[in-house]
Write a protein that binds this DNA or RNA. Structure first.
Length: 574
RNA sequence: GCGCCUGUAGCUUAGCCGGAUAGAGCAUCGGAUUUCUAAUCCGAGGGUCGGGGGUUCGAAUCCCUCCAGGCGCGCCA
């Protein structure tokens, strides 16, 4: 199969012209190392694109900016697709480009199987580590960000051609299992043990944990069970395995609702066998030194304090596990990079173990994408305080709110369809609420924010898409043979915006901010809604109609592509 | 104390590798449906971009400083 050549963007075409023009007019200052930049006009009144470089060059050229701009425009013939090139204000070069030329570029973009998204990841592998809940605790609203943002980044990378290995690095090992095993045996009836749920496990954990605080004998017993588990005791291994199986079953139910799927489910325990070797290696290379009975790596030189790699009781901790995980992933997948998506609190931890990995020669690029911790208005929440909101409850509420509206607006629809649509809309509303904001902003949870159904919300985008589908269905013919022919300002604006899709996907991915794409899609849906309101499509004269339907089909495809990159569903009817 | 981050309209926010009049949504008020889905569209009011200083032709954006808040800083992950 022939690979379609990457269509160069209008900006790139215009920038290379102006680059040559500046170089010709001012060879001394605009030669080597100078990069002309053309960006979208800040205001449609100014034109379609603008270049601000004349102002930057003015000082070095020792001429007023407007003179520099004029000299550049005089240096080379203006390309034929440029209808108007004028100098404005202090020295902006404003460019107005032929709508038809833009439309032709857009046709090229749509002929590309990736809608013009550069396949920079071709042949490269990235391991992504996101969501990663702890076994035996229900997922709560604090897990939604890592899951939803991580999954969107996963999808964005795949769209750029990367092979992504999404690994759900479950918290399935650690001191909590001694507490859990004792609690499980002491507090649960045989029936409860038979019908074990994560919710029960959580209750048992809290109860057992509280008892360790007041009953030293109990605490000792928990420790003993933990040691037995770590030494491979059959009975404890079996119980532990059961906790994991039950947890995975429940997590999967939620992931299915969220359309999130992993390639691997390797918990921390998967790397247990490698932990001693990691510490030995650090000891042999004199990177780890004893301190108060523990083994630490001193990273003060790098401003990263010290990091414990082996506890004074001989046990290993998370830093060791994470280093072992990097080693294992590097051997198995030879990834270009490993990306971790967690909340802001773990920044130091990641910096520390990234530094240690470098010291022992693990040179895989490691990246920590952090996001703002979700809080409640009264502060942070924790299992022990019992003020968590379960993720499942949030999803249920989202679907219920959507269902109420659907029953009202589609009384004719059968119950099953209403529920299916409510799921499509409700879940997407929850995901969009997270994806549409900068991941690094602080988030204070509120039901109304998380479940917004109008304005800048998931359903707004889905509604625009459903209207497009409805219109295309009513038209009922294939649009493949039609050509775009933008004739009105709003149509041209849509074409210009659609042309920005590839760069938007790339920017969202490289900046690790799905919000850039969410913003773009919202603007696209908004412009479509304005177009829809002001411009008849099916009722227009035939030539106009066919071109407009074609435009609608391009918008629909782009919107659908983008919504899927965010992990949002695209029902054809709302 | 040290480190990371945040501060934009009543609320939620976009813009932050410097560009022209700081864009939206919610809420409030006023309009639009014999017309392709009103979860829509159009309009109005509402801003010392936390304060101060600096760099620059130009600062929400870069630098310094102060204020306010969040998070993290050796054996939890």
């Amino acid at each position: 199969m022939k690979i379609m050549a990457q269509a160069s963007s209008p900006q790139a075409v215009l920038a290379s012209w102006l680059q040559a023009a500046f170089a010709k007019a001012y060879p001394e200052v605009a030669g080597e190392g100078f990069q002309a930049r053309v960006v979208a006009a800040t205001n449609p009144e100014f034109g379609d694109f603008q270049c601000n470089d004349a102002m930057a060059l003015a000082k070095r050229a020792k001429q007023p900016p407007r003179v520099v701009a004029q000299a550049a425009l005089d240096a080379l013939p203006v390309p034929e697709m440029v209808c108007k090139a004028e100098i404005a204000g202090p020295g902006f070069i404003n460019l107005t480009v032929s709508a038809q030329w833009l439309a032709d570029r857009l046709e090229e973009q749509m002929a590309n199987p990736h809608l013009g998204v550069p396949q920079t990841g071709e042949g490269k592998t990235i391991v992504m580590d996101y969501s990663s809940p702890n076994v035996a605790k229900p997922m709560h609203i604090g897990h939604i960000r890592s899951t939803v943002i991580g999954n969107a980044l996963d999808r964005l990378l795949r769209a750029r051609g990367y092979r992504v290995v999404a690994d759900n690095h479950l918290g399935d090992w650690g001191t909590q299992f001694g507490i859990l095993i004792c609690g499980y045996r002491a507090f649960l009836t045989p029936e409860q043990q038979e019908n074990l749920t994560v919710e029960l496990l959580e209750k048992v954990y809290v109860q057992s944990y509280n008892r360790t605080k007041e009953d030293p004998v109990w605490l000792e017993q928990c420790r003993a069970e933990l040691v037995k588990l770590q030494q491979g005791d059959d009975a404890n291994r079996a119980v532990w395995k059961r906790f994991i199986d039950i947890s995975i079953r429940e997590f999967t139910r939620i992931y299915d609702r969220l359309d999130v799927h992993f390639d691997l489910w390797r918990g921390e325990s998967y790397y247990n066998d490698r932990l001693p070797a990691v510490v030995e290696r650090l000891q042999n290379e004199h990177l780890a030194v004893p301190s108060d009975g523990a083994w630490i790596v001193d990273l003060k030189d790098e401003g990263l304090d010290v990091c414990i790699v082996r506890k004074s009781d001989g046990g290993f901790n998370y830093a060791t596990t994470d280093i072992a995980t990097v080693a294992s992933r590097t051997e198995e997948f030879a990834p270009d990079s490993i990306i971790y998506v967690t909340d802001e609190r773990q920044q130091l931890h990641f910096k520390q173990f990234f530094a240690i990995c470098r010291k022992i020669g693990l040179h895989t690029r490691l990246e920590h994408v952090w996001f703002g911790l979700m809080r409640l208005p009264e502060g942070t929440f924790s299992t022990r305080q019992g003020n968590v909101i379960k993720l499942e409850a949030l999803l249920d509420e989202a679907e219920n709110r959507a269902l109420t509206i659907i029953r009202d607006s589609h009384p004719d629809m059968d119950e099953a369809s209403q529920r299916a649509l409510a799921a499509d809309i409700g879940i997407s509303a929850v995901k969009y609420a997270d994806l549409s904001h900068d991941p690094q902003s602080l988030v204070v949870f509120s039901w109304d924010k998380a479940l917004a159904l109008d304005g800048n919300s998931g359903p707004y985008l889905q509604y625009a898409y459903a209207r497009l589908c409805s219109l295309l269905d009513k038209y009922g013919q294939d649009t493949a043979a039609h050509r775009l022919a933008p004739a009105t300002p709003i149509e041209k604006q849509l074409v210009l915006q659609l042309l920005r899709y590839p760069e938007t996907v790339e920017r969202a991915s490289t900046a690790s901010k799905p919000s850039h794409l969410a913003d773009y899609l919202y603007e696209l849906a908004r412009n479509y809604s304005r177009f829809y309101q002001s411009s008849p499509v099916l009722k227009a004269a035939p030539e106009v109609r066919d071109a407009r339907v074609k435009l609608c089909s391009v918008i629909a495809r782009t919107l659908e592509h983008g919504l899927h990159l965010l992990g949002l569903r695209t029902p054809r009817r709302i």
